[in-house]
Each structure stands twice: as C-alpha cells, then as structure tokens.
C-alpha cells in the first residue's frame, strides 16, 4: 500500500495512464470548479472550460514539465485558460480583466461558517468587509483558507515570492480584524 505522491501521479499521466489521470481529475475537479466559478461567476462557462482544460492537459501531457506538486500548476494554468475563454466570449462583459494576473473574487455570506474560530470574525458584516479588501489580498485569502493551499503553492499561482504571500495574508487578516472592531462600534 502506498500513498500516491503528486510526482508519481504526474509521471504516470505523462506516460498516458488514464487511471492516473482520473485520480487527478477527481482530486482537483471540485477545487478548480469552485475557483473557476469565483472568477467567472458563470456555472456553464466554468463547467465547459474545465472539460476543455482537462482535455488540453491530457492532449499535451507529453510536453508537460516534471512536477513535484501539482496544485500550483493546475490552478495557474486553469486560471489563464478560463480567462482566455472569458475574453473570447465577450470583449465588453469582462473588459475589466485586462490584467491576466489579477482577479476580483467576491465572497457571499452563505460560504462563511457563522461560528468563526477567531471570535472577532463572528460578525454579520464579515462578508462585506472581506469583499472590500484589495483584490490580491482576497485572492490569497481565497487560495489559503477556501482552497486549502500552502503559502508556497500560492506564491507560484500568484507569481510572487513566499514572503509576499505571508504579507498579503497578514495584512488581509489584520485589517479585517480592525474593520470588524470599527464596524462593531457603529452597530
């Protein structure tokens, strides 16, 4: 019995092993779907783009470089793939995403657990305050706490260094805490 490492799965995929590909698909479908839906806000587009994306990965498997961890590669390439599709679909609708690396993610109240571990965050306005954070802080927060990725993986996806990821998260959480306490004063 062995636990499958990313490296092993990736190697098998490159050799054309459909079983390994199905393991990859099943482990990442949900996470990429949620990420794609956050970016595109469109269920059909997310579903279609994921089909095309995975097909693209499989068809180009022989040209893929060797990987130790798969998550950053999949998140980053899928983001690019999806944004290209969005641009093709409508030039006007998504005109605000001219910069490929920055996305504006929006959180909804029903995604948040009402009983937060950090007591200060048990606040009705949390979603609103969260959405008011700068885009890059929001993306780091999403990838860390929603997708459950490690800071090192996030740094590859956002194309910044490790320290910048920690700083983004730190600033985000800190200003959120301050915002919450200010919001409490006015309630």
């Amino acid at each position: 019995m062995k636990k499958l490492t990313d490296k092993y799965i990736w190697k098998s995929l490159k050799k054309g092993d459909l079983n390994a590909f199905s393991v990859l698909f099943e482990s990442y479908y949900s996470k990429l779907y949620n990420y794609g839906l956050k970016i595109s806000k469109n269920e059909t587009l997310t579903e279609d783009s994921l089909q095309d994306f995975f097909l693209y990965v499989y068809e180009h498997r022989e040209n893929l470089s060797d990987l130790e961890t798969i998550a950053p590669y999949l998140f980053l390439s899928y983001k690019r793939f999806l944004m290209r599709m969005m641009k093709k679909k409508s030039r006007f609708k998504y005109s605000d995403i001219s910069n490929e690396n920055v996305v504006d993610l929006e959180f909804t109240a029903d995604e948040l657990i009402t009983n937060q571990e950090i007591v200060a965050f048990n606040n009705a306005n949390l979603t609103k305050l969260l959405n008011n954070l700068p885009k890059r802080q929001k993306e780091a927060i999403y990838l860390k706490y929603y997708s459950g990725l490690k800071a090192r993986e996030i740094s590859e996806i956002m194309n910044i260094n490790y320290q910048s990821v920690v700083n983004l998260l730190h600033k985000g959480i800190k200003s959120l805490k301050e915002d919450v306490s200010i919001a409490k004063l006015f309630n």
Binding site: D110, E111, L112, I113, N115, Q116, E117, I118, F121, L126, L130, I141, K144, Y145, Y146, V166, L169, H170, I173, K174, L176, K177
Partner: peptide
C-alpha cells in the same frame, strides 16, 4: 490569527 484565518464551508 494567520493560521486560523477565515473558516469557509
């Protein structure tokens, strides 16, 4: 705080 972060469903 950074480790706990925000809890999502």
């Amino acid at each position: 705080d950074l480790i706990l972060g925000i809890s999502f469903k």
